[in-house]
């Protein structure tokens, strides 16, 4: 790889040692192979769209010329276009839809290949459509709001620095309105992490984002156990803790661990980081705005190194959690 083609990644990170070579030898050739598929798909989509438009135009022109169907297109008394207009629109949309479907199919394939390759570098396993069976623990811990429909994607699992983990992206939506005005709105979009934890515990301890007295109260009463006030004022400014056992909560949230959680929350900026110790695992919810692990669209060159750089950056969130919280070390104080 020449200097100009170098990836823009944080080479000071030990996790990324050797990634440049891996990119040159594994990922880049794979992307080059996918690039020819992208060219074919784009050409095919362009042809389908063009043919669709031409066929539609010729059809309308000949119908109007020979059968005088112009009035079927004209607006009625209510000002809406005639039924022939809608038939034509549907016809054009079906041609364009076919072209877009082809590109989306390729996008999914490119994303899957890319994430599989990058995961393999870190020694992780990847599942593109994991199903929602992993969501139960987060839901039971109330780290995610109640929902009617759930969609999960991009599940990664494996071991980093001796810590077992699972990570996936989650979209939750809830129904709104009554029978006549029924709708749906997204109530949660975020990354959900589950880590093994080096300490044994039997109860549940939830660390929620501090949202002011009223919201804390409304959110807190849903959690099992009692409100536990901890000694660290910085931690208390960011979070509030609910737990089934105050001694166990303090055993898990040692002064040092609290400092690390605050450090992590500050590193993640305004995102509402929340945690729960439950069933021998540390569960973490990180709400996000932008869709994660997408690998870019199909209108840009599939070989663009930006795709890989973004995915690698998205992976660093996982490493930051493990490294900042030092999940591989059992802290006593």
């Amino acid at each position: 790889m020449s200097v100009h083609e170098q990836l823009e990644i944080d080479r000071s990170r030990p996790e990324l040692a050797g990634f440049d070579d891996y990119y040159a030898n594994r990922i880049s050739p794979r992307l080059a192979a996918l690039a020819s598929e992208q060219r074919k798909a784009r050409t095919w989509a362009a042809w389908i769209s063009s043919i669709g438009l031409v066929v539609t135009a010729v059809l309308i022109w000949s119908l109007r010329r020979h059968y005088h169907v112009g009035k079927w297109f004209e607006p009625g008394d209510d000002g809406r276009p005639g039924w022939a207009f809608w038939v034509t629109a549907a016809f054009v949309a079906s041609w364009l839809g076919t072209a877009i479907w082809k590109l989306m199919e390729l996008k999914s394939s490119v994303k899957g290949s890319l994430l599989k390759e990058v995961s393999a570098f870190f020694g992780f396993e990847y599942e593109q459509r994991p199903g929602s069976h992993n969501l139960g623990e987060f839901s039971a811990a109330r780290l995610v709001p109640s929902y009617d429909r759930a969609r999960t994607e991009d599940r990664f699992s494996g071991c980093h620095a001796g810590v077992d983990f699972e990570l996936f992206e989650c979209f939750l939506s809830a129904e709104t309105g009554s029978d006549e005005d029924r709708g749906s709105k997204q109530v949660y979009h975020g990354l959900l992490f589950s880590f093994s934890f080096p300490k044994a515990f039997s109860g549940q301890t939830v660390v929620l984002k501090d949202q002011g007295r009223m919201l804390n109260f409304l959110k807190g009463w849903k959690h099992s156990g009692e409100r536990i006030k901890l000694e660290d004022p910085r931690f208390e400014k960011h979070f509030e803790v609910w737990g089934t056992d105050p001694i166990e909560a303090r055993y898990l949230l040692t002064p040092t661990f609290m400092e690390r959680v605050v450090e992590l929350a500050e590193a993640f900026g305004s995102s509402k980081l929340e945690l729960c110790f439950r069933n021998k695992r540390l569960l973490i919810s990180v709400p996000v705005v932008r869709n994660q692990f997408e690998g870019g669209g199909m209108l840009t060159d599939v070989r663009s190194k930006k795709r890989v750089e973004i995915i690698v950056r998205e992976f660093t969130r996982l490493f930051d959690i493990v490294n900042t919280l030092k999940l591989n070390i059992r802290t006593v104080v």
Binding site: E231, P246, I247, T254, V332
Partner: peptide, 17 residues
């Protein structure tokens, strides 16, 4: 012993609070 001391420290913090 380290494990017990960890639990004892937590119990002490709870009691002092």
């Amino acid at each position: 012993y380290t494990e017990v001391e960890g639990h004892l420290a937590a119990a002490r913090r709870t009691y002092n609070a």
